[in-house]
């Protein structure tokens, strides 16, 4: 099971990276989402996959029963998912605001903060045309 999940995580990383190389910022954000899930999958796999008992302490006992599953990776992933959810939601809103302000989602065409030098070749056209 572990190799399968490792390959899956690698595939997600690769797909996310591919999307992040696009000029369209919305695709970049989708790539980020994929990579964030890949990172969570890495943590999950690293916590070892085992069919274990619930890590709960029965009434009257002081230790959980033998062979209990490791709850820590799940707690970590839960935290990471919630944080990732907030950050990615912010990134999406930012993409929307930037589109409203700058009129483009093409990251190469966003040259307001770093205006082109005199004589520099700049990108024109929308990214969708380029990719169609």
């Amino acid at each position: 099971m572990e190799p399968l999940l490792a390959i899956m995580a690698g595939f997600l990383f690769a797909s996310g990276l591919y999307l992040m190389l696009r000029r369209n910022y919305v695709r970049v954000v989708i790539g980020l989402i994929l990579i964030s899930n890949a990172a969570n999958l890495v943590i999950f796999t690293m916590g070892r996959l085992a069919r274990g008992n619930p890590p709960l302490v029965a009434t009257g006992e002081t230790m959980p029963a033998e062979g209990f599953a490791n709850p820590l990776p799940q707690a970590l992933i839960l935290t990471a998912i919630v944080i990732g959810f907030g950050l990615l939601a912010f990134a999406l809103v930012l993409a929307y605001r930037a589109y409203r302000e700058l009129g483009t989602v093409d990251v190469d065409a966003m040259r307001v903060a770093e205006p082109p030098y005199p004589g520099e070749k700049t990108v024109s056209g929308t990214p969708d045309q380029e990719e169609a």
């Binding site: 970049v28 980020l32 990172a39 969570n40 820590l72 930037a98 302000e101 990251v107 307001v112 903060a113």
Partner: peptide, 26 residues
Amino acid sequence: MDGAIKYVTINLVSSLVFLSGVGILY
């Protein structure tokens, strides 16, 4: 907006690399 897009994207990538590293060390 322009600056924030670059800052946010690259820093998110950095966080995800960090998170993967933490996972592997764990």
